[in-house]
Design a protein around this nucleic acid. Structure first.
Lengths: 229, 229
DNA sequence: CGGGTTACTGACAGTTTGTGGCAGTAGCGT
DNA sequence: ACGCTACTGCCACAAACTGTCAGTAACCCG
């Protein structure tokens, strides 16, 4: 059996068992060697399947890792769809696709009549913003999530270019621009960077020395949304 | 991307689209040649996915095919939270609350570590819009859902007030204004009504004689988003 | 009808990657 | 301490995958 088919089968098999199953048993059932089974499990995990393996025990599908059927009110459905549509328009392509994917996954676990509500939602959002981002917003989001230092070349409003090391911790979606919010090592202060003015950037290996949640909190307390680079 | 991962992605992509998608578009999105995409589709079909392909049309995924039970990705969580935050800012209080409620329901079925992602999401939306609505947007949404005629008193840009019977079928959330889109019996044409200019309104008992989905489709085909009352 | 679009199929050669076996590390329960 | 089990690295071989090129057929629209 081809690997691509086997992985789907493996998921099904895991769901069938309730108790932990040993890798050897799964390997036998799917007809591959133990070594390959470990690789298959790793592959599934890397794709988001919540499989837990414990030494001496075996593998278990994390209970609740599949979305259970959910109920939403009509208002809630409309809010979700409207939000997802706004993301589809306002965010960069990758995040936009992620929003649509999430909506599709939610719709998949809805009762039939509610799924129809999703399709026929009548709330619309305005036209798409114009500004072009030079920077890869996905990379910025990744740096924020992993709390990594970014080294950026940034062009200010006068066109002057500077190189900085910054600690990014939030990304603001405004009407016409998107702004990375970070602690700037150069200024030793919080700074805002318009993503369309970030010429290029490189994520560093080292994490920055503080937690992003703390940075966000301190920045919020300043209550100063207007400071620029 | 490895084939085995690509196939799962492809399924999700297919589910995201509602209308038929051309193989070329799917190939481009998954970063693979057209030939390989045809092979991927064939592979999915042989594993039981109900994908229908028609020459000159494209591919559609028949509903009811159970997608492999994958969780939300980090990108998807971020997109949902960002959308929900935008709704919280841009929509009227009731819809904003509904968005927050929906988000809470989703978070409730998430594994612990993902729930933490929701709480600590670092994507922000810009400041709240200013315009005040005179009209009750919840009532408009209700009229749209139930396809009821609305009788409104509307003040145009010159302050001239008119009374109209309209068939509302959509609500547009723009940057600074919100617009009810409806068929106007007075003008016998589609018209847009800024919600901050609707002085008052009364929902009628009678349904309007056409389906809102059809009205929406016809209005879309006009491709004229600028027409006012 | 004819032109444009699209779904499909076959062949082939280069490349990738999947694979099993072996060896070794480490965590868990008894 | 012991057995069971999850994991990881390495390696050589085989199988699978991939893109390109070519060609067929079906559908829609004017």
């Amino acid at each position: 059996m081809a690997r691509s088919e086997r992985l789907l089968t493996l998921l099904q098999t895991l769901r069938r068992y309730r108790r932990p199953v040993s890798g050897a048993a799964l390997a036998e059932e799917t007809g591959v060697s133990l070594r390959t089974l470990y690789r298959d499990i790793a592959s599934l995990q890397s794709q988001g399947a919540m499989i837990e393996g414990e030494a001496g025990i075996g593998y278990v599908l994390r209970p609740g890792f599949m979305l259970p059927p959910m109920m939403f009110s009509q208002d809630e459905i409309e809010a979700l769809v409207l939000g997802s549509r706004w993301v589809a328009r306002a965010a960069e392509p990758r995040l936009a696709a992620a929003g649509a994917d999430a909506m599709a996954k939610i719709a998949a676990v809805l009762p039939d009549d509610m799924r129809r509500e999703v399709d026929s939602a009548t709330l619309l959002v305005g036209p798409r913003r114009k500004g072009e981002d030079k920077a890869d917003l996905s990379a910025i989001r990744k740096a924020i999530r992993s709390e990594r230092i970014l080294e950026i070349n940034y062009s200010d409003e006068h066109g002057a270019v500077s190189t900085r090391r910054v600690w990014p911790f939030a990304l603001g979606y405004f009407e016409h621009v998107r702004v990375m919010i970070a602690w700037c090592e150069l200024r030793t202060d919080f700074r805002h960077f318009r993503t369309d003015r970030i010429i290029d950037m490189a994520q560093q290996e080292v994490r920055y020395p503080r937690r992003r949640a703390v940075l966000l909190k301190e920045w919020r307390e300043l209550d100063d949304y207007t400071r620029h680079a």
